[in-house]
C-alpha cells in the first residue's frame, strides 16, 4: 500500500503527460498536472527554510565544529527574511513588489549577494586553467589528440592564429588555422555532441518508461508492506 499509491499516481500522471503530447485536446490537462508541482513546491519551500534554520541552530547550540559559520548563515537568513517581509526601505510601501528598486531587500541583493556570486564565478577562470593543465598533458594517443584540437581552437580564435596562416592561398583555406578551428567545432565536435544528445533522448524515454511501468522503484525502497 505504501508503494502502491505513489506508483499509481506516477503511472496515471506519466501516461497522461505522454499522451497529451500527441492528443491536442489533452494538452491543457498536461499543463494542469505540472501546476500541481508548483503548488507542492510552495509547501516544500517552508521545509527548506525550516531545515536550514534547524540544522544551524543545532550546530550553534551544541557548539559543534565550525559553529561560527552558522552565526553568519542565520544572520543572513533572518536579515533577508525580515527586510523582505516588512519591505523595509521599499518606496512602494508594504503592498509593493519586494524587489522594487530602492528597497533594502533589492539593495542587499545588488550590492552584497551579486558581487559575492560574481566573485565565485570569476574563480572559474583559474579553475579552467588548472583543469586544462591536467587534461592537456599528452599521456596517451587520445590525450594528444585532445591537446592538438584544443591548441588549434585556442589559436584559431586569436589574431595571432589569423596572422600565422594568412599566407595560405584561398584554395587551401581549410588549412588556415581559424577555418580549421571552425571545422573542428562544426564537424567532429558537433557530430559527437549530437550522438550524445540522441543517447540522452533514448535514456530519458527509457528512464520514463521504467518509472511509469513501475520497473524502477529504488527511490521508494524495498516493499515492506
Amino acid at each position: 500500500m505504501r508503494r502502491a499509491i505513489p506508483l499509481t499516481i506516477l503511472a496515471v500522471v506519466g501516461t497522461v503527460l505522454i499522451v497529451s503530447v500527441f492528443l491536442p485536446p489533452l494538452e491543457n490537462l498536461g499543463e494542469d498536472f505540472t501546476l500541481f508541482f508548483d503548488i507542492i513546491a510552495v509547501f516544500a519551500f517552508f521545509l527548506g527554510g525550516g531545515n536550514l534554520v534547524r540544522i544551524h541552530f543545532n550546530k550553534l547550540w551544541r557548539k559543534r565544529k565550525d559553529w561560527g559559520f552558522s552565526i553568519v548563515t542565520l544572520f543572513g537568513f533572518f536579515f533577508m527574511l525580515v527586510i523582505g517581509l516588512l519591505k523595509i526601505g521599499n518606496p512602494g510601501g508594504i503592498g509593493a513588489d519586494p524587489t522594487a528598486e530602492g528597497s533594502w531587500f533589492q539593495e542587499t541583493f545588488n550590492y552584497v549577494i551579486n558581487p559575492l556570486q560574481s566573485t565565485m564565478y570569476a574563480l572559474l577562470a583559474f579553475f579552467v586553467a588548472s583543469a586544462s593543465y591536467r587534461a592537456f598533458r599528452a599521456k596517451n594517443r587520445e590525450a594528444t589528440l585532445l591537446l592538438l584540437a584544443a591548441f588549434i581552437i585556442l589559436l584559431g580564435r586569436t589574431p595571432f592564429g589569423v596572422m600565422l596562416t594568412a599566407w595560405v592561398p584561398e584554395s587551401w583555406s581549410i588549412a588556415q588555422i581559424p577555418n580549421l578551428a571552425v571545422w573542428i567545432m562544426n564537424s567532429p565536435n558537433l557530430a559527437g555532441q549530437r550522438a550524445i544528445i540522441i543517447g540522452i533522448g533514448l535514456g530519458v524515454v527509457s528512464m520514463s518508461l521504467r518509472l511509469i511501468l513501475g520497473i524502477e522503484r529504488s527511490y521508494l525502497g524495498e516493499d515492506r508492506g
Binding site: I196, I200, L202, G203, V204, S206, R210, I215, E216, S218
Partner: peptide, 24 residues
Amino acid sequence: GEELYAASAYLGREPILLGSLKAQ
C-alpha cells in the same frame, strides 16, 4: 549523457532493470 539514466539499473543488477537497458 544516457549512462546517467542507466546507472541505477547497473547498480541494482536486477534482471528486469537490465532488460530495459537492453531495449535501450
